[in-house]
Design a protein around this nucleic acid. Structure first.
Length: 561
RNA sequence: GCGCUCGUAGCUCAACGGAUAGAGCAUUUGACUACGGAUCAAAAGGUUAGGGGUUCGAAUCCCUUCGAGCGCGCCA
């Protein structure tokens, strides 16, 4: 019995108690999904439910009384070995070995689809993240969303959603001109303008631009600066793409802000807003009345001099995304942009949408990097910036992605580079990957011994006897595997993939403990036994679950390390 | 000044309103002639920043004080 089946069964228990009048309760007051969780304290059983606590008030009972009424129904179930009331009114449930062990077969059979669902089938998400200026390398500040944004998209897809990863290129405006002027100055051996870009990458770019097109230096101004700007833009954007590919984050759409203007999307967006009646003129400028929807001030779309603001692009871009058919637009912003949350939601409202349904703005806090006990400062305009590529070079893609994903994004994060490079349990990615590689090794060895085939899909389920998996650690490991789909679901709903990473760490611990206490393969000349085979099934199910989880994080699951 | 986010073990961090607030690191102590020791077992470490409130139950929700980061442009 899976926890999902148990949850559904509990629902029917409540209904049964209502139908015979033991519980006086409106059916609508029964929670739609009854929570079934692993108790923190494993002595409490395999699963626990708080359903009695949840319905007691509506039923006019205290929680323990409600639990007393439900208990006989719970006990009278195939596969449930025991159940008892504990604490304020929890019902703790212990499954029979056979019932619990069925899950192992389910996982091996489900293979790559274990933990997936179609709960979001037919729903379409636009995930916009990073969206850096193409005026420099991606740095540490971008890296958190590069990892987490991609993981959220993977998790949405695992639940059947259509999720597009979109990078908005801020290729319009004065910062591009400063970028062009900076590379031109570097190429001509002139001092870089005070308000330009001073990173060490500028002279490198300048050299490459001139190498590609030696005549560029002979152009007249202002054509020369423009030519530098465009050449630098092209090179820098290509570099950002290259590094993100390296990082295993692949964008489906690279959307240029310029193209938004060239395609007429801005006009379309303005027409939409005008139609909704939230645009007005004041002081020669055109405004959007975002204060109608919780913004703290109205925003200018067109300046008095006729120039469009950045905000104008933002609004048009939102309208354009919705016109492209996305049900939900998710924005992943850095903490320095948290002031945008209300205005973006107001944009959606001004466009006639319901912000709670069509737009989600997630804010990620800063990442700090420590090395040798000191903070490594990063500044886009200074020479010593830590780039995403530096991070990859330093610790590798897997460790970098995993370390950025395993923490919720709403707290500032401090990473210690010295620890990240260590291949110890201090670095949880290796702990999880090691468990995977270790299992792969056991199954390889089993195949070498002729105990079983290396292809788990060809194993005969009839050889698996769950009642043999009687050790506590085996039961705990199975419970952790059973809980995995629920964890993925919560990661999807809350947009918090770190939950998966944390659960994989628990599974890895569960496996190492099992491995330490329960010998899998026969020793010496001993023959393989039914227990050997049953434990190999458990190994295979564990390997599959870890593999699936790591895939959702974009981290590799090595067979060997 | 206003707003947003945050404050949990020495450090880095968990905990969807649930049971005795948990991991890792660091510290101390154990376990290999066995399938990968990149492992396992154990000890110690807490007034969840302070104070009120809400309820069967609060680190979590509300109010307040203190502290930290960030943001408040007809810039992009």
């Amino acid at each position: 019995m899976t926890p999902q089946e148990l949850s559904e069964h509990l629902h029917s228990c409540v209904h049964a108690a209502i139908s015979v009048g033991q519980l006086v309760l409106d059916i609508n007051d029964v929670p739609h999904v009854i929570v079934v969780e692993r108790p923190k304290n494993l002595e409490h059983g395999d699963w626990a439910t708080n359903v009695a606590l949840q319905i007691s008030k509506k039923a006019g009972l205290n929680p323990r009384q409600a639990a007393e009424i439900l208990l006989p129904y719970v006990l009278d179930t195939d596969g449930i070995e025991s159940a008892e009331i504990a604490g304020p009114g929890f019902i703790n449930i212990r499954l029979s070995k056979a019932s619990q062990g069925e899950l192992v077969l389910d996982i091996v059979e489900a293979a790559n689809s274990y933990g997936k669902s179609d709960s979001l089938a037919g729903k379409s998400f636009n995930m916009e993240f990073i969206s850096a200026n193409p005026t420099g390398p991606l740095h540490l500040g971008h890296s958190r969303w590069a990892a987490v944004g991609d993981a959220i998209a993977r998790v949405l897809e695992a639940h059947g959603a259509h999720a597009i990863r979109e990078f908005y290129i801020n290729d319009r405006g004065v910062q591009m001109d400063k970028f062009g002027a900076s590379t031109r100055a570097a190429a001509l051996g002139q001092p870089i303008p005070e308000d330009g870009y001073h990173g060490a990458y500028i002279p490198v770019l300048a050299k490459e631009i001139v190498a590609n097109d030696p005549q560029i230096v002979d152009l007249e101004e202002p054509q020369r600066t423009i030519a530098f700007r465009e050449a630098a833009y092209e090179l820098q954007l290509a570099d950002q793409k290259r590094v993100l590919d390296l990082f295993n984050t692949h964008f489906d759409v690279w959307y240029s802000e310029r193209s938004l203007h060239e395609s007429g999307a801005v006009d379309v967006g303005f027409a939409k807003l005008r139609e909704q009646g939230h645009m007005f003129e004041d002081g020669g400028a055109v405004w959007l009345r975002t204060t109608d929807f919780d913004d703290d001030k109205d925003r200018v779309l067109v300046k008095a001099d006729g120039e469009l603001t950045y905000f104008a692009s933002d609004t048009a871009y939102y309208v354009d995304k919705r016109a492209r058919g996305f049900d939900v637009c998710i924005y992943l912003l850095g903490a320095d942009h948290h002031g945008y949350v209300n205005r973006l939601r107001a944009v959606a409202a001004c466009a006639g949408d319901e912000p709670d349904d069509h737009i989600e703005v997630l804010v990620g806090q800063m990442v700090k990097m420590m090395k040798g006990g000191e903070e490594v400062r990063l500044s886009k305009r200074a020479g010593n910036l830590i780039t995403l590529e530096d991070l990859i070079d330093e610790v590798g893609v897997d460790a970098a992605r995993y370390s950025l994903i395993r923490y919720p994004v709403d707290s500032p994060l401090v990473l210690d580079l010295d620890l990240l490079v260590q291949r110890t349990s201090d670095n949880p990615v290796y702990y999880v990957q090691y468990a995977h590689a270790r299992i792969a090794s056991v199954i390889r060895n089993a195949a070498d011994l002729g105990v079983i085939s290396a292809d788990t899909q060809s194993w005969n389920p009839a050889d698996f006897d769950p009642s043999l998996l009687a050790d506590d650690r085996e039961g705990q490991l199975i419970g952790l595997l059973a809980d995995y789909p629920r964890v993925v679901t919560s990661a999807v709903e809350l947009r918090e993939p770190h939950r998966i990473a944390r659960h994989l760490e628990e599974i890895a611990t569960g496996y190492h403990r099992f491995y330490d206490a329960c010998r899998v393969l026969p020793q010496g000349d001993e023959p393989a036994t039914p227990l050997t085979i049953s434990r190999l099934w458990l190994c295979a199910a564990t390997r599959q679950t870890i593999f699936n989880g790591l895939e959702l994080l974009g981290v590799s699951a090595p067979e060997r390390m």
